[in-house]
Amino acid sequence: MATGEPLIVLDSVNKWYGPLHVLDDVSLSVDRGEVVVVIGPSGSGKSTLCRTINRLEPINSGTITFDGQELPAEGRALAKLRSEVGMVFQSFNLFAHKTILENVTLGPIKVRGEKPAAARERGLALLDRVGIANQADKFPAQLSGGQQQRVAIARALAMQPKAMLFDEPTSALDPEMVGEVLDVMTSLAREGMTMVVVTHEMGFARHAANRVIFMADGKLVEDAAPTDFFANPRSERARDFLSKILTH
């Protein structure tokens, strides 16, 4: 896969919730193989931004292009596009009535029409990769949060996505479980997966990101390499945000 060409392009994207302007003329381009971390205070629109990329949130104006194709309207074409974009949620959202292995094989079998035996084998390999192969026959509620989130990553990877979206993947975890999830994400980043990560984990932003996007009040305020951003934030808003989170 060639790196350096844009995979995800947002152009002048606007979105309102009633009178609230949650995305204010946001333009952003993410290249293949790039890891972009989105940070900002709560309510800045960063989660919404992440969710517009696979159209879980529709937008009011502007365009979003994925792999050269503009996001289609709700329907078969959109479902196909979503199958090529992995998504990991803050609250895991594993299918509660399915076993861990079924969670991982459901997409390949039902969306891609893979043979159950082949999907099973690959599913087990993915679970092994995220370190939970021995829990394959349990149900989500029997696993810890960190384990559930690693299953959720495996579920997304099972679709062999072109890009992965992470919407605050560690925010609902107990502190001692954050590391195990970030480890999986870091190894994905190293392997060249295109990733958009909304997070409050500044350590991850520093060591795994190619670029850091800072958002506030629905606007994309800064877009810089992590070293530049953390050393010399250009905007007052970013300086203020960093001073609040980095002094503790």
Partner: peptide, 18 residues
């Protein structure tokens, strides 16, 4: 059923009916 369940299903490419 929490909305996240349907969102996760749509996110892996299942159709509305699925």
């Amino acid at each position: 059923v929490p909305t996240g369940q349907a969102e996760a299903a749509r996110a892996i490419g299942l159709s509305f009916a699925q």
